[in-house]
Design a protein around this nucleic acid. Structure first.
Lengths: 241, 241
DNA sequence: AATTGTGAATTCCTTCACAGCC
DNA sequence: GGCTGTGAAGGAATTCACAATT
């Protein structure tokens, strides 16, 4: 039993769990909009085809947030999850690589309500340097990435450069103190200990879909849609500090 | 033992496995460029911080592709993987939702060499209808999505619409016979049996990174970077045909 | 000697099932 | 009665370790 209802755990939490926490939070956000006061683990489980015990376990690990016979107070749990996921203050984000994807991400509204703020953009192409995105943010030369990351206290870097350039970018931003990276380049990166890399690899996603098209009889018949996002669970240079 | 060296399995293959097959293929593609003739499971494992037994198991499931004492013939295994992943012929892809992300994807070059071809684009916005992307492909009205999917023999649909519109799009394309969907909308979709949905959820990825920033002491110290892409493993309406 | 293919062992994750509480 | 929190059971995925093969 955690017994430290607000102040965190001592063991390790799997990335499958953190992904689910994010899903629970999304669910609670929706319920909050409709002014729903409480919700049971079963109700949430139904919505996402998860198992209710899993939800309870995931949550119970961080504290006793529920009330027996009642369920979870939506607003209360929402606050707890925000805290656990480190979303109570804005995280400053930079994008490296302003090609199609990088540009789309720079203009994308959909980042979690207001927990993430894109504050810097980088590209090697001198043609692009100086240009501004729709939001009015200026593209800077990748050469200065380290310096600016420090100056701007950037915590998360999104890598959207070609595969061949990704490793070098990772090194540079890691040198500048960044410990969290979202990598869109279709390449395996080897982060140093203490640095977390999450990968979004469109080729893998598409090829995996292609496999299922090529093997329609595959996949057990009654596994149902049960499972949800096992998104990534990426490379991670682990390590306590 | 599979014993049917070319013609497929009878059980189910996990999505973790298909993701890895895709990684192996990428590795082989690189080796092929350098005219490397053979490769051992250990050599591949080193490159991606995987376990060599896992690679051998993954491959052995589909046939006996290796040669004891030698390893795997790069070109031979590459062909086998292409076949297994269904990449020997082009798969026709449509994108629904031409906002920032959809547009970026429409212009993106990086799709696996030439196994995927984007042949149709859709958006609800009548302003956008008729406009062409850089590649010269015209954006069509979402109303006609079913008809065009059938006419164009589209097999894979990329959903890049807002969360609220995604479920409806899924229904429509499923009605039109699509069985593979890549969903970028931050929402859980419930596909019918026999339809595969892979999710790419940027909010979950970022929030998961945020968790690790908020909990630096977390994550066991010597798990090392071992694990690689557990990308998604999404919703799946399973089912034999 | 090197390296695959694979049963057995292990580790990790999920689900069950129920005691405990409201 | 309804629902949480959780130990125990079950299942899945990974890794070990070695016999089989070239």
């Amino acid at each position: 039993m955690r017994s430290n209802p607000d102040n965190m755990k001592t063991e390790k939490v799997s990335e499958l769990t953190t992904n689910r926490l994010s899903i629970y939070l999304r669910c609670l956000n929706e319920l909050a909009v409709f002014k729903v006061k409480t919700v049971s683990s079963q109700a949430m489980a139904d919505q996402f085809n998860l198992n209710s015990a899993q939800i309870r376990k995931d949550l119970a690990y961080f504290g006793e947030f529920g009330v027996r016979g009642v369920g979870y107070y939506v607003e209360d749990l929402r606050q707890h999850l925000m805290k656990i996921l480190g979303l109570t203050e804005k995280r400053r984000v930079a994008i490296v690589g302003l090609g199609n994807l990088g540009t789309a991400l720079a203009n994308y509204q959909g980042f979690s309500h207001n927990s993430f703020e894109i504050v810097a953009l980088f590209d090697v192409d001198p043609e692009k340097a100086g240009k501004k995105t729709r939001a009015g943010l200026e593209i800077q030369d990748t050469r200065n990435v380290g310096e600016i990351i420090r100056r701007e206290s950037i915590e998360i870097v999104i890598i959207a450069v070609p595969a061949t350039a990704a490793e070098k970018v990772l090194e540079e931003v890691t040198d500048a103190g960044v410990r969290a990276v979202l990598n869109f380049a279709p390449v395996h990166l080897n982060p140093r200990p203490g640095v977390k890399v999450k990968n979004v690899d469109l080729t893998i996603s598409l090829e995996s879909l292609s496999y299922f098209l090529a093997n329609p009889s595959d996949e057990a018949v009654n596994v149902h849609y049960r499972e949800f996002l096992r998104q990534d669970t990426s490379s991670n240079g682990a390590g306590g500090d």
